[in-house]
């Protein structure tokens, strides 16, 4: 089997400061990878390098494209990469306002990716938007409302719908539950788990919250100071941490 995403020796420096150093791993189809660490651990740098938002100094990020098989997304042309990022990839930002168009209705937000890939039938676009609002538990009556009138949890669910409407195969998530109330977090996590399972999605979730990875991630990488210090099956890593830093994390001494 070919990995859906193969990260090979990715490093990124900011001057003399290490963002992330020599990170390698394979993500298999249908797999959810969690990346945990404190702020400054390099997990967000790594995520942005994988998603094409940052250019790594060295290394390859090889994605198994539908048309041409495995391709290094670091060296592919920008139009190809941008096309990938609105078709087969999705990116859920921590702050929904970074991932939504706040001046556009909920339906328009969900429909944008469809229109970006050539959908030109209003009725079809609206039907799909309605369907996706239901799938993320937003009342269809809100389809013409702007996200600025939505609660934080609803905005985050709308961002997810907007990302998943084109049926991507890989979703990057940056602290998807950050900043939400605990009860809202739980509902969002349940929703995400259901969507990932139903759609057979592969996902990479960056978070400082071990509860999030415990619920969603099949495998886990622990990062510290730009390096991966421990990796393995989620339950194994959390229940029997080997690295001293992971032991500290798990004992929640370092949990923010």
């Amino acid at each position: 089997m070919t990995p859906l995403l193969s990260v090979q020796g990715v490093s990124k420096r900011y001057g003399t400061h290490i963002g992330c150093a020599d990170v390698s791993f394979d993500l298999w189809p249908g797999e959810v990878m969690g990346i945990v660490g404190e702020s400054g651990s390099g997990k967000s740098t790594l995520l942005n390098c994988m998603a094409g938002h940052l250019v790594p100094d060295t290394g390859a990020v090889v994605f198994d494209t539908r048309a041409d098989g495995p391709r290094d997304t670091v060296t592919m042309s920008e139009p190809e990469r941008r096309m990938l990022s609105r078709t087969d990839w999705a990116f859920v930002h921590q702050h929904a306002r970074d991932g939504l168009r706040m001046g556009v209705s909920a339906g328009g937000n969900v429909g944008e990716r469809l229109m970006a890939v050539g959908a030109r039938h209003y009725g079809d676009i609206r039907d799909k938007a309605t369907d996706w609002l239901a799938r993320v538990e937003i009342d269809a009556a809100r389809i013409d409302d702007r996200p600025s009138t939505f609660s934080g949890g609803m905005q985050q669910r709308l961002q997810i719908a907007r990302n998943l409407v084109t049926g991507p195969r890989l979703i990057f998530m940056d602290e998807p539950t950050g900043g939400l109330d605990v009860s809202v977090q739980a509902r969002l996590l349940d929703l995400l788990r259901g969507l990932v399972r139903d759609m057979g999605l592969s996902a990479i979730i960056v978070t400082h919250d071990l509860a999030v990875v415990r619920l969603l991630a099949d495998r886990l990488m622990v990062m510290k100071s730009g390096h991966v210090v421990e990796a393995g099956l989620t339950d194994q890593v959390l229940d029997d941490p080997q690295h001293a830093y992971t032991q500290l994390l798990v004992s929640s001494v370092l949990q923010v």
């Binding site: 556009v104 429909g111 944008e112 990716r113 229109m115 030109r120 676009i125």
Partner: peptide, 10 residues
């Protein structure tokens, strides 16, 4: 140019 159609959708 998907954004142009978002305007018309709205």
């Amino acid at each position: 140019y998907g954004l142009m159609h978002v305007k018309l959708y709205e």
